[in-house]
Write a protein that binds this DNA or RNA. Structure first.
Lengths: 343, 343
DNA sequence: GTGAAAGCGCTAACAC
DNA sequence: GTGTTAGCGCTTTCAC
């Protein structure tokens, strides 16, 4: 079932069928109707692989996220999908994982399968990214600066973490555990940046930060957060505040604290990071840092618009190097005060 | 940068380059190395749109889910992605939404963009699905029977809901609110099926089910669950049990109950449905129905294997109608007892 | 073991 | 307003 079958059945040329498919204006209503009728009768649908090859575009934007089951990314993807669809394109989500798999996933996305690619970077570094030699617009979104060569929308991890920890200290906490990781992590990674915020907040307030309060959580998931507070108690490090590097870890910590019979916020105050939807609804509701998810989505979409417009122009033969230099946008973080803290 | 550029630089034909790309065995090591070297130097990557068109496959499996930010689907997608990747393919996730958008998304997926499509059906009916005339294997996964013409992996909604409500009744609850919807809903939809389970459990136990306990929740989200219990209290319908049609709605209900000063499970027992990861970690942890997410993923992958093998065979010219009749697999549901219920 | 050449199904000039 | 035609970049016989 190809365009040729339709053309034959409708007694027109393939070009006419193509014109109908693509809503080219100058056509007789009569022919258009006839062709549409035939397409419907035959159940014809254009083959996108052929269209993609010929037209050089797919009308699909790819979004690479480390995992498909993290609430933050699901919610970010939803915001981005809304924008992409409003612009007449489609968003598809692809899991990138970490390490070698991340490079592989990016390499796949680099191919012309997508008109543009949004990558939520985890471990990819500048060299790897540049080596991929993307032919389509790329927007990086994430926690850390990666490469000067790409548009990048970042959250302000250090400032956000500082906000969170300062809020705990202001609320009277003096021993704030950090659930995530410490100086040993990749210094440009998300965990290390939030650790820096934790340290800075202590410095500003003149409170000594006990390094034993830094708990490494391997998988940043619910169980990790739960384990971490148990471990803290087991080794006997006293604490009256918890800053979890993500809301999900904070949920696990809330669970662990309940198991230990510790009350929130009376015995221990807790702050998370991300402001995922669930944070407003858990009991007690979670004080957290809104890293500007919606602003991030909006910035990504803007960048995409600009780059894709440029793409079209240069494809159309306007060579003039009006190429905008790669932009780096840092979205500010704000504190959302809820029940898990005093302050 | 095409295969021709590589061929020229390596002083071989395009066919040879293609052979190298596709790991065709009979080739001199020398040529292979040279071509690989040139590809690397030039940073060449094959264009998948061309390859797809010519080869008639994409090595990509599409998964259509109603929303990207629902924990259940994120977790299901993760399980399926693991299996798909283990088989050397890639999974991409696409949001289908509901209503007209769902048909549109399915129509897009029907195109040869994917080698196979998994659809988590919401409102699509048999006629719409058949009209799309899929050319690739399709596996339906979801709540309700749709069309005899497709492979379908279903959860046992009615039995699962019965299990949940029976557990509440066994635990002494006599006025079990249903958060989701009632007889007014599409009778084959998920909500209506879980409503049937609610009714059946009452019948079995000989308990009268007060229709005023059925609360319609428009969006099955956190806020919906929260509102529902507030509404129940506002209109003064007494209740001592809550069966929420999804865990997410149950979380909202837990929140609402806390706001109302009602203790769980002492004043009100709560059961959810789906057994998403979060259910084990909330406070109190949520008794829920495990609808067999992992078993569903496994069944989907099996079906996919069979169908894709058939596809290859028939493409290879083995016509004999060894086509397996569409299968309908119902995965059993089990109750997971946690802190939100006595019983 | 390597090369020449014929398309895969569609779009976009351009001719009429 | 419609038709003719030349590819998009790749895979795949089939010669040699």
């Amino acid at each position: 079932m190809t365009i040729a079958d339709v053309a034959r059945a409708a007694a027109v040329s393939t070009a006419t069928v193509s014109n109908v498919i693509n809503d080219v204006p100058r056509m007789s209503q009569e022919t258009r109707q006839r062709v549409l009728q035939v397409m419907d009768d035959l159940g014809y649908r254009p083959d996108p692989t052929a269209r993609n090859l010929r037209a050089g575009r797919t009308d699909v934007v790819g979004l690479l996220v480390p995992e498909l089951d993290r609430p933050y990314f699901g919610q970010l993807a939803t915001a981005i999908a809304d924008g992409v669809e409003a612009r007449g394109r489609r968003l598809v989500l692809q899991r990138s994982g970490t390490g070698a798999k991340e490079v592989e996933a990016a390499a796949f996305a680099r191919l012309r399968m997508y008109d543009a690619v949004i990558i939520s970077v985890v471990g990819l570094d500048a060299a790897e990214l540049e080596r991929l030699n993307f032919t389509t617009p790329v927007v990086l979104v994430g926690e850390r600066p990666v490469s000067r060569g790409f548009d990048h929308v970042m959250m302000d991890n250090v400032a956000g973490a500082r906000l969170a920890v300062d809020h705990l200290l202001a609320g009277g906490a003096r021993r704030v555990a950090l659930l995530g990781g410490g100086p040993g992590d990749d210094p440009r990674g998300m965990v290390a940046q939030r650790y820096r915020g934790w340290r800075q907040a202590h410095e500003v307030r003149g409170v000594t930060a006990d390094p034993r309060l830094v708990m490494t959580v391997d998988a940043l998931d619910l169980e990790g957060g739960r384990q971490a507070v148990h471990e803290l108690t087991r080794v006997g490090v006293p604490f009256d505040g918890v800053f979890a590097v993500t809301d999900v870890v904070a949920f696990g910590a809330l669970r662990g604290l309940a198991e230990l019979g510790l009350r929130v916020p009376d015995d221990v105050q807790v702050v998370g990071f991300d402001d995922i939807l669930e944070s407003r609804y858990c009991v007690p509701s979670l004080t957290t840092v809104d890293a500007g998810r919606d602003a991030i989505a909006a910035a990504v979409l803007d960048l995409l618009d600009v780059r894709m417009r440029q793409e079209r122009k240069s494809a159309a033969g306007t060579p003039g190097d009006d190429r905008m230099a790669p932009r780096e946008i840092v979205v500010p973080a704000t504190l959302v005060h809820r029940e898990s803290t005093r302050g």
